[in-house]
Each structure stands twice: as structure tokens, then as C-alpha cells.
Design a protein around this nucleic acid. Structure first.
Lengths: 213, 213
DNA sequence: TGCCGTCTACTGCATTGTGCAGCAGACCAT
DNA sequence: ATGGTCTGCTGCACAATGCAGTAGACGGCA
């Protein structure tokens, strides 16, 4: 049982789903907490059935069939044990930051583009969450009694997205002052930033004095 | 060639490394942009050698030997092509958020503990970055001419960590008002939050009026 | 002098997870 | 009738992880 298995099991505890529905639901709701591939979402319920935590049966509509999964009593027990295990370390993968670390291998333009790509990706997610919230106000939540959880979850997403967007703007302002990506080293501006960070202060919030790099 | 391959190739372009050194360096510098397992860091340079992007030779110190890797001209060319490819989508995995989404399966205590675990994990990373910045001020950067890149990168980390820490505090305040994890649904407080989010406004920054959930 | 613990320096293997290609029915528009 | 999109999956190759195991180097300490 991996964390992904428990994620699927938790969905099955809400109601029964077909494999396809699980992939759609995971796309809509789990994506921002626990992004997993469509492929895995088809595989996990099969594993749950093999372990006795779910049952499956085929539903036919005309010439087609689809697999419907339901949680079992053992599945509910297993879910309960998960709730008081240690969570895994958070994991954040942002290729744009990797490009930034090695930006001296490319041009200012390359770096600028990488920032733009991050902005676009985050922007999409940002818009999706805002629209989701609007849909809760307009049409309600698919599981109304769970609205408070989805909304508190969404506050996290919005804070994150706004922070990343603000940082991108900040990074652009910094980079605009760079003549090139290379060999700038520990110039006065970088030293000022380092000093702020070493004192755990945010360079974004601070007043910006005359620039000198 | 995966993104991880390019990450290792970029390290090799800075200087030659042994397999072990690569795992240490990745732990120190790449970890926050592109977290990869020690195991992979041993495998990747072998793949680069097979592809002709690196060479390897054994160095002996007494009875021991270690593999030293160096980039080739083809490797440098390959690196250059990477710089203007599209970056991958950012990917953020935080199990605590998954626990929050399904918090109605457990107790307030379970949720509280999950938040504490996230706080601890982020706190460790946060401290590590602050110390790293202090070390840049005190002893300098291992590649001085690249200091400006590391520091701009670090501004991202600090912003992220601060945001997550602020959110955890906010989430705790919200949860403190919950009698239980279940069935709260769309109460007045949640509706107020949803409205803010649907208008893309931060609930953390806003004045908090009298609470009513 | 011998033993323990920690650091260096990896490798093999089982398992998890991803991406892509492929297959096929349903339904709609042109 | 033809093509396009959505539903609804499966197989396969490959990427990546975690863990166990191996082994030399080095310092401390009893």
C-alpha cells in the first residue's frame, strides 16, 4: 500500500467509481496535492481489489462495459490506519529553478523563457482553482458536507500560486539588470540579497534601494 | 536523456566529480529544485558515459578506487540544446494536503499532526537554506562566479517556505474553530473564504472579522 | 590491539510510477 | 459514410526509488 493507493481508497470511500471516473476525479481534485498519472489511476483500484480492500464488477451499457469499484469493510479499516501514520516529505520539482541554477550555460533569453513557462503553467492552475471556487458558490460542491475541506485546501493553492507569481516578477526585475547570465558572482546587489536571506528576511517585501549590479 | 540526465551533465560541466561527490552535491544544491535519489545519481553518469557525453576513469587511493566522471565536447553540445527546450510542468507533492482533503476520515488530532509534520519538514529545509546563505557570506560560494544564480534561486526557496509556514498557521487557526473534521460543509466562514478565493484574493492577507463557524 | 561506529563508495534487485501506443465502442457534425 | 472527440481501458518499455548488501578508511576508546 503506497500513499497513492490510500488516495484512491479514500476516493472509493466517498462513493463507487469506474476506472475512468477515477482518472477524471483525480485530475480535478487530487492533482494539486498528489499528482499521479492516468495510467496509475487505472492500476491502483485493481491492486485494491487483489488486496481485498475493494470489489469490482462490470457494468454494461449496450455493447460496452466498464469496471465499477467499491470499497469493502477491510478497505475502510485500512484507510483508518493510514490516518495516523507519518506523512511523507513534501516534494517540489520545478525545472525552471534547475534552469536558473545553471542559467550561465544559456542566454538571458533562455532564462527569461523558462520563467515565462513557469508563469504560464502556474497561471493555468491558478485560473483552474479560482474557477473551481466560483463553481462552489454557483452550483455547490459535489460532496457538500466536505466543502470546508476543499476550500481550506484551496487557500493553500492560491497562496502558493500568488507567491510563485510574485517571485517570477521579482526574478525578472533582477535579471533585467544583468548584462549576461555569467560571471556576475558576488556583486553588491547579490551580497545585499544574501544578507537578507541569511537573516531569514524576504527580499520581495523589503524596500528596494538604489541598484548597483 | 531525461531532465535528471541534464542536471547531472550540468554539474559535470562545472568540474569533474566522483559518483559519491555527485550524490553529495545533488543533496546540497539540486535538492530543492530537482530532488532525486542517491541511487539515480550513481546511475546517471554511467548512462552519460554510454551515450558519449562523459568519460570515466578509476582513481585509486590505497586499496580503494572511485569513479571520476568528466564531460566531453559532445556533452557540452548536448547541454546547450537542452537550454532552449520547453521546461516540464512544475510538480508539487505534499501528502499533508492529501490528508487535509480527506481529513473527515480521521480526527482533528490526525489533521493537526499532519500539519505539524509538514511544518517540521519545511522548517528543516528553511533552516538549511538560511545557513547556506550565511556560509556564502562567511566562506564564499564553491563556484564564486555563480553566486548570483544560487542566491536568486534561494530567494525562491525562502518565499516558498515562508508562505507554507504562514499557511500552516492560518490552517491551524481555522481548524481550531472546528468542532470535528466532518460535515461542516458550506458554513458561513467557508462561504466567506470561498468568495475571497473566487475573486482571487488571499484569505491570509485579509482582515479577519468575527468568526462564525 | 581489537572492536565499534561513521564516512566513503558504490551495486543489485524488487517495486513503483510514467508515457506512449494501441484498441474499441459511442455519439455527433458535416 | 467519414472523421473527430469522448469514453474506457491494456500492454510495454523505461524511469526512478528504497532497501539491502559489500567493502575499505579512519578515529576513538577500553
Amino acid at each position: 500500500m503506497t500513499t497513492s493507493s490510500y488516495a484512491v481508497l479514500a476516493l472509493l470511500d466517498l462513493r463507487s467509481w469506474t476506472g475512468y471516473e477515477l482518472t477524471q476525479q483525480a485530475q480535478r481534485s487530487l492533482r494539486y496535492a498528489w499528482p499521479k498519472s492516468e495510467r496509475l489511476l487505472y492500476s491502483e483500484p485493481k491492486k485494491l481489489v487483489a488486496l481485498g480492500y475493494a470489489t469490482t464488477h462490470k457494468e454494461k451499457s449496450g455493447n460496452r462495459s466498464r469496471n465499477v469499484y467499491e470499497i469493502t469493510a477491510e478497505g475502510r479499516e485500512e484507510l483508518a490506519t493510514w490516518m495516523n501514520t507519518r506523512t511523507q516529505e513534501p516534494r517540489i520539482e520545478i525545472e525552471t529553478l534547475l534552469r536558473l541554477l545553471f542559467a550561465d550555460h544559456g542566454s538571458i533569453d533562455d532564462l527569461s523563457r523558462a520563467l515565462g513557462e513557469l508563469e504560464a503553467d502556474i497561471g493555468e492552475h491558478h485560473d483552474a482553482i479560482v474557477e473551481l471556487m466560483a463553481s462552489y458558490l454557483a452550483g455547490g460542491h459535489p460532496f457538500p458536507e466536505r466543502t470546508h475541506l476543499s476550500v481550506l485546501f484551496a487557500t493553500f493553492q492560491i497562496e502558493m500560486f500568488k507567491t510563485i507569481e510574485r517571485w517570477i516578477e521579482f526574478a525578472r526585475e533582477e535579471i533585467d539588470e544583468w548584462p549576461t547570465t555569467q560571471g556576475l558572482g558576488m556583486n553588491p546587489r547579490t551580497e545585499a540579497l544574501t544578507l537578507l536571506l541569511a537573516n531569514d528576511r524576504s527580499p520581495l517585501a523589503s524596500e528596494r534601494g538604489p541598484r548597483s549590479n
